[in-house]
Design a protein around this nucleic acid. Sequence first.
DNA 1: CTGAAAGCGCTTACAG
DNA 2: CTGAAAGCGCTTACAG
Lengths: 338, 338
Amino acid sequence: MATVARDAGVSVATVSRIVNGKIGRASAETIARVEEAIARLSYRPNSVGRALRHRASRVVAMLAPNLDNPAMAAIAVSVESALRDAGYVMILCDTHDRAELQDDYLRAMRDQLVAGYVMVSAVRSKGLEETLKRGDPTVFVARRNPLGGGAYVGIDNRQAGADVADFLLGCGIERPAVLMAQQNASSTSERAAGFIERLVARGVPNDAIRRAIGPGLSHIEIGYAAAGMLVREGGWPRGALCVSDMIAYGAYRLAVEHGVPIPQRCRLVGVDGNAINAWIAPWLTSIRIPYESFGGHVVAQLQSLWSGVSTSEVHVAHEAPSAWSNPGAPARPATGAG
Amino acid sequence: MATVARDAGVSVATVSRIVNGKIGRASAETIARVEEAIARLSYRPNSVGRALRHRASRVVAMLAPNLDNPAMAAIAVSVESALRDAGYVMILCDTHDRAELQDDYLRAMRDQLVAGYVMVSAVRSKGLEETLKRGDPTVFVARRNPLGGGAYVGIDNRQAGADVADFLLGCGIERPAVLMAQQNASSTSERAAGFIERLVARGVPNDAIRRAIGPGLSHIEIGYAAAGMLVREGGWPRGALCVSDMIAYGAYRLAVEHGVPIPQRCRLVGVDGNAINAWIAPWLTSIRIPYESFGGHVVAQLQSLWSGVSTSEVHVAHEAPSAWSNPGAPARPATGAG
DNA sequence: CTGAAAGCGCTTACAG
DNA sequence: CTGAAAGCGCTTACAG
């Protein structure tokens, strides 16, 4: 910047103003000279100097568990792209769903003077509490703030669960089961709750709804284990809600091992609608969550926080349960007929 | 830091030295006092101030196309974790395989004073040329430097292709085909080349090897399209190399639509060995690339570059073609018997 | 309309 | 063994 200033015969203050578009009645001639110097020297403002001065960078931290999950990857892609359009870049932190790692990252990100935090499926932790208390701009995605309150982007999980209940009942499956995780996140437990509530409301006896709860953190293994428990304690159900697509994948593997045809013998309904399903999981019905639209909402929430506007939860609409459809064609909503 | 200094009754220079462990014969008493102050005030050094002074941050930029590809996600996870262990954080830039976006990011990352670049499947571009000319620490992953030279981490793609040729021949499939992408990356074109070379070397007439080349950027759609071309021009082959798992997924979809049983009627062999295959793609044989080990190699390469040591290419060993195996159990290498 | 100066948080020769 | 001072690249009240 000093070089540009010298080259253009002005002060660095002037260069700074012009670079930042703060040209309240600046002389057109000066502007031209400076811009010419900038171009000639191919000068680019240094983000770090700027960040130090502002005490905030144009970097946003995204903390997420396991990118291995296609749903997480989809969120990351979407948020990254939306941030970029808004002039920010994203540091990706893989927390593996572990509180200590989350806190390590939270600290490291603070040292980076990040402009905000995107917490995907955050877990409760000391550091999260402090971040929130400090008032740092934070938006929660997919899983609500475990400490309550705060900006949030996600679907109405209870409704999604209810939709699956309606769908399975509509398929003539009168005693569907539910496969879920032991470590309960708000999102998946709400799906299960909404599912069960609706079944009960429609006349299914509460104790006729079989619940299988798999241990661990990996949803795919949870699905495999939960399906195993379910089958051991009473055979394959005719249909089941898997609270995430990954859980459905795990259950599928067991079905293949048992030679149980899916979906003919047991209809599995997942939640996420991973893009890959349309290619290699013709057997899966899933509630699609439009993760590709999450980025825009997350950035809007952040911008509200930055400008001091209070934010509320954003509920993105999910889609009806649907299965296999033609590539390129719009998703074919499954009719109740199964 | 000034606060800590005041609190401990020393200068900021002293605090800085102690924070950075530069305690050449420092008085133990001073150290204790400073550390106590640091703890009391829960002081943490500011990365941005540090970066400005050093003119280099502890941030590494990773530029990758489409995280939607599980292989890319696996690389991102691995690199992120290895960087973290080395005290760095990772900015993730999704280039969508487009040169202009890659250049935008390269510029933005330079402004961030990133310590290095991890280019996953980079494309040739002006900005890449400049970055390299400038001598910025850069390591290429999966796809070689399109401009030649440079640090690289990946498998021996030619050998992988040859292995698939041996495998298919060993299955008694005498006229296997190959499905590949039009936009040729070094990695996938080397796989195809190694495959064909080996087939020819083992007596398959060159013009008996059917090659299907799909257009576009999305490997899954490339696979679908390429399979379509292949089938239209001579029916389903008895076996094929798909130069990536995603391409195999695309081909699989067409097979399902055609009612062609995979692998009985047509054995598909992919490359990547995505973790998900073991759960929902029992029909796929794949060469597994141990992406989980890439992070360590990438960081080692970067550290060499930082310390001015010249680096060479790192070739990670891939695994033999294998299919469906028990979860938790070691991958069962497929025998030639099919 | 523009410049001089202070300061964001840190590090590092240079003195002492 | 430790401190005063300069400087990394930028922004912004304050003067003029």
